[in-house]
Amino acid sequence: MNMEKRDIILREIQYWRRTKLLSEQYCDFLTNLYDDEGMAKNQNPITLKNLQQGSIRIWLFAFGIISLILLIGFYFSVFPLGLQLATALSMLVVAYGYAGLLRDRMPAFSFSLAGIGGFLTLGFGLWIISLHELNEGIWIPVLVALCGLLWIALGFFLRIGLLHFSGFGALCLLYAGFADRLRPDAGVWELQLLWLPLCVLMIWLSWLLHHRLKGVSGVYFGVGALLWLMPEIDMVLLGKDYPGWMSLLLIGKIAVELAGLFLFRKKWIEWVTA
């Protein structure tokens, strides 16, 4: 069978498995039927069994990767700015690139690489800002904005929901910081007006896109559910003075959210699993 057609069929089987359209037994049977040759090629080589029985090349490769990371860590601070940026970009391209290439064959390893890439993006940025004593009030918000946009784009194209969600989380932090600068004395009800329209927007986008773009609707719905509680989270994280009854408001909003999720569970579960 043509490899491209086989991959399409296997992706559909995995979709049937996630959405419970077929039982686990049928999905396993179909996977073994269509992936008789591909399973051996696509197995994750980094397992305890494979390491125990593997060739010396695997261990030499691991030694080279670890040594390279340590060398970069030791000498990164003495590199000129141009070389620092080139080194950081090279490592990010490798991490995100392999996360995309291995997305279907080795999803767990792909997610790990995407997480490492996200950590490195933020870590290298903060390190460069600290080494060159750049204005933190300007460059840290710029870094957070770039990280958020990068994670949203990569999470969308690589179909990694957690990375996509993290991008929106970074932009929410940036929005909270700017709102605090513009309105440092904002009260509880003003914060509701700042955050709740965004909550409605993300829920609406989740509904709008659940038939058009697979894997995006669930992320937008999760962001919308988080934004429902962001006014209270905003006050706590930024250390604002809040009234004693805000805890009751938070409990009430959680109760309303859970009640809404229960009443409309058939609708939003369809969006999330689309």
Rank of each mutant, 00 (worst) to 15 (best):
M3G: 01
K5P: 03
E12A: 03
L22S: 13
D28P: 07
D28M: 11
N32G: 14
D35C: 06
A40T: 13
K41Q: 08
N42G: 05
I46M: 14
T47P: 03
G54M: 08
A62G: 05
F63H: 05
I65C: 15
I66L: 15
I69Y: 14
G73F: 14
F76R: 01
F76W: 03
S77G: 06
S77A: 15
S77V: 04
P80R: 00
P80S: 08
G82F: 01
Q84A: 02
A86S: 10
T87F: 04
A88M: 13
A88H: 11
S90P: 04
S90D: 05
V93Q: 12
G97F: 08
Y98I: 03
A99M: 08
M106I: 07
G115H: 01
I116D: 05
G118M: 09
G118W: 03
L122S: 09
F124R: 05
L126H: 09
L131T: 07
L131D: 12
H132C: 12
G137C: 01
V142M: 10
G148D: 02
W151P: 02
L154Y: 12
F156E: 11
I160W: 04
G167L: 09
F168A: 06
D180T: 00
R181A: 12
A186C: 08
A186K: 05
V188T: 06
P197I: 02
V200Y: 10
I203M: 13
S206F: 13
W207V: 04
L209H: 04
H210G: 06
H211F: 11
R212F: 10
G215S: 07
G215L: 11
F221S: 06
G222S: 11
A225C: 15
L226Y: 09
W228T: 11
M230S: 14
I233R: 05
V236Y: 07
G239Q: 06
K240M: 08
W245Y: 15
W245R: 02
L250W: 12
K253C: 06
I254R: 08
L258R: 07
L261W: 06
K267M: 14
I269C: 04
